[in-house]
Nucleic acid binder design. Structure first.
Lengths: 238, 238
DNA sequence: CGTGCCCTTGAAGATCTTCAAACGCAGTGG
DNA sequence: CCACTGCGTTTGAAGATCTTCAAGGGCACG
């Protein structure tokens, strides 16, 4: 059964007995979404924890003025809305399906019952949320201290790790990725992203087209992410 | 016993039996830090989960160039390094004691044993970390979409909620708070903070001095936090 | 073949940083 | 008691970075 394997390989269920996995699958609901569907929306009461089976979700928040921020992408085997189900509040983001997406979903009650019955799952969940927290804090620091080009470099490197695929001449980020998306991930505008990518393209670091980026010299990007002329905000603590 | 009450009132231990609290205290280590001490440092292997008894910790990260970012302050009854102990990696931040600080500390092994033995604690921890994640995502969005004055207003309002104390003429933020601190919390420079606060002081919204801020018209700050001329980064999704 | 979306580029200008200089308060030591 | 010194703060001026707005190009898709 493919679902069993997917669950067993997910961070939420890893290390659990097959019986537990079966039990989890039994009380899950299968769910499908078409491209551009919102699986759940920021601010709604959080009712379902989703685990992506195939496809991908894009998690976004909107500012009061309508500006969009992309928190992250959720791929196969990854869970989302964990936070919301565990602290019992509202969804902190909107989840957009990118292309057709299949998911398993657990109601808050079902998931809490699972966690209570199988402590290993609670510890897994704890680890999962902790890792997410660590990553967001990292990005918070970047946003607070680094400049745009540096942040874009880091965003691309993260995407390479998530969805990178070897092609001739470099590594392709294997998903539709617009300038607007990159801007919403890095707290800038699509215009600035466009300028930065154009510059890098002229330097042979990347090659890009419509919703498509290929990294030709990854180590060049790494250098940009780490060595770029710093904006020394705040003072040192000598 | 005062420790019992503190634990019972903390988010990590709330709802636990008195026997569990006693067990937890029994396997905790008491720890003290003087002003300016680092209780733990970013990047060190995470070994101890700390719960502040009296005093306060300041959690900071540093960028590669030495710029300081303040993640948050940890007051009595609050825990920190939860993340690090649960995902088993390194401390993601440095914890500075502000004034003399007393803490209870659990080793990773002790805490994991507690969590395994008492599922209610694991669920509490999950809720705790989830709330932290929610808050950091919120601040990430602010940093990505709002301008400096707006972010400073929000930071002050958060501090009021944490340490606000009524005084004649307004609400005092009851801790030493420099312009540099505010800058490190909001991703800007101490110069910009100084200018913004001067402006607000001339408008009668706040009253400030050396490492001291009194909010005279909180609703004025709220208005600034929510209505300020937006920087419409990113495009709308119509 | 048109239409919509994504992307590019230029120019103007707002916001914020950077640097320099100086003020004022608090604690220290003569 | 007073000057000295350190540190947090203020303010001005210059300028870098990034946004905003406008105009147009190009590719994909219907």
């Amino acid at each position: 059964m493919r679902l069993l394997d997917l669950l067993g390989g997910s961070k939420l269920f890893q290390g659990a007995d097959r019986a537990v996995l079966a039990e989890a699958i039994a009380c899950a609901r299968e769910q499908r979404a078409k491209a551009e569907d919102a699986v759940f929306r920021e601010g709604e009461p959080a009712e379902w924890l989703c685990l992506v089976v195939t496809g991908r979700l894009k998690l976004t928040q909107v500012g009061s003025d309508g500006a969009e921020v992309i928190l992250r992408f959720v791929g196969p085997g990854e869970a989302t809305a964990a936070l919301a189900v565990f602290d019992g509040a509202v969804y902190p983001a909107t989840a957009w399906a990118e292309g057709g997406t299949r998911m398993l979903a657990w109601s808050r009650e079902a998931m809490q019952a699972l966690l209570r019955t199988h402590p290993v799952l609670a510890l897994n969940a704890l680890q999962l949320v902790s890792e997410r927290l660590r990553e967001v804090q990292e990005r918070f620091r970047e946003l607070a201290t680094e400049r745009v080009a540096q942040r874009i470099a880091r965003a691309l490197l993260r995407l390479v790790r998530q969805t990178g695929r070897k092609v001739e001449g470099g590594v392709l980020i294997d998903m539709p990725l617009s300038r607007h998306d990159l801007a919403a991930m890095t707290g800038t505008t699509l215009f600035t992203v466009s300028r930065v990518l154009s510059e890098w393209e002229s330097q042979g670091i990347i090659e890009s087209g419509r919703e498509r980026v290929v990294i030709k010299r990854p180590h060049g990007l790494v250098a940009l992410a780490e060595d770029l002329p710093p904006s020394r905000r705040g003072a040192e603590r000598p």
